[in-house]
Every structure is written in structure tokens, then in C-alpha cells.
Deep mutational scan, measured.
Amino acid sequence: GTEDLKEEAKKALKKGDKERAKRALKKAGLSEDQIKKFIKEVL
């Protein structure tokens, strides 16, 4: 589900894998702006 994808994105970001995080967030249905915001909040 969406929460799982967001968790996956957080883990990817902590490993420095932004591309993987972006893919997971796109799958979760987030827009580009939401993805940028999510990444900023996590990092």
C-alpha cells in the first residue's frame, strides 16, 4: 500500500538512493511537488 511505499522511500533515502525513493513515491501516487517535499522532509 501507500504507507509501505513511503517506508520504502524513506529507507532508500537514508541509503542515499534518491532514484529508488522517487520510483516508490510515484507508485504511491504522489505528484512531483509532493515527492520533492517528501524528500526534503526526510533528508
Results as ranks from 00 to 15, higher is better:
residue 3 E to I: 10
residue 1 G to M: 13
residue 14 K to L: 15
residue 10 K to G: 03
residue 24 A to T: 07
residue 19 E to I: 08
residue 40 K to W: 15
residue 8 E to C: 06
residue 7 E to A: 10
residue 8 E to P: 01
residue 38 F to R: 01
residue 42 V to Y: 14
residue 27 K to G: 05
residue 34 Q to R: 03
residue 32 E to L: 07
residue 12 A to L: 13
residue 24 A to D: 04
residue 19 E to S: 07
residue 36 K to E: 15
residue 17 D to Q: 08
residue 41 E to K: 10
residue 6 K to T: 07
residue 15 K to A: 15
residue 26 K to V: 11
residue 27 K to C: 05
residue 14 K to N: 08
residue 37 K to G: 09
residue 29 G to N: 04
residue 37 K to D: 14
residue 40 K to F: 14
residue 18 K to L: 15
residue 19 E to F: 07
residue 24 A to H: 06
residue 13 L to A: 03
residue 13 L to M: 05
residue 2 T to I: 14
residue 20 R to Y: 11
residue 42 V to T: 08
residue 15 K to P: 01
residue 28 A to E: 03
residue 5 L to G: 04
residue 5 L to V: 05
residue 32 E to N: 09
residue 28 A to Q: 03
residue 35 I to M: 05
residue 25 L to P: 00
residue 27 K to L: 14
residue 22 K to T: 13
residue 34 Q to I: 03
residue 43 L to D: 05
residue 30 L to F: 13
residue 35 I to A: 04
residue 9 A to L: 04
residue 23 R to A: 14
residue 39 I to R: 01
residue 11 K to C: 11
residue 5 L to M: 06
residue 39 I to P: 01
residue 12 A to H: 10
residue 31 S to I: 02
residue 32 E to G: 06
residue 19 E to K: 07
residue 1 G to N: 13
residue 27 K to R: 12
residue 30 L to W: 11
residue 16 G to Y: 05
residue 30 L to C: 05
residue 23 R to T: 10
residue 20 R to A: 15
residue 17 D to A: 04
residue 42 V to L: 09
residue 4 D to G: 10
residue 9 A to I: 06
residue 16 G to P: 02
residue 22 K to S: 08
residue 38 F to T: 01
residue 37 K to V: 11
residue 10 K to R: 15
residue 20 R to P: 02
residue 34 Q to V: 03
residue 20 R to F: 11
residue 8 E to K: 06
residue 24 A to K: 05
residue 11 K to L: 13
residue 36 K to P: 03
residue 16 G to R: 04
residue 29 G to S: 02
residue 25 L to E: 00
residue 19 E to L: 10
residue 39 I to D: 00
residue 31 S to W: 02
residue 12 A to W: 15
residue 37 K to I: 14
residue 6 K to G: 03
residue 35 I to Q: 03
residue 18 K to P: 11
residue 34 Q to P: 00
residue 11 K to S: 10
residue 20 R to L: 12
residue 1 G to L: 14
residue 4 D to H: 11
residue 22 K to H: 12
residue 26 K to T: 09
residue 12 A to E: 04
residue 26 K to G: 05
residue 33 D to Y: 09
residue 41 E to P: 01
residue 31 S to Y: 02
residue 37 K to H: 11
residue 5 L to F: 10
residue 24 A to S: 06
residue 8 E to V: 10
residue 37 K to M: 13
residue 31 S to Q: 04
residue 17 D to S: 04
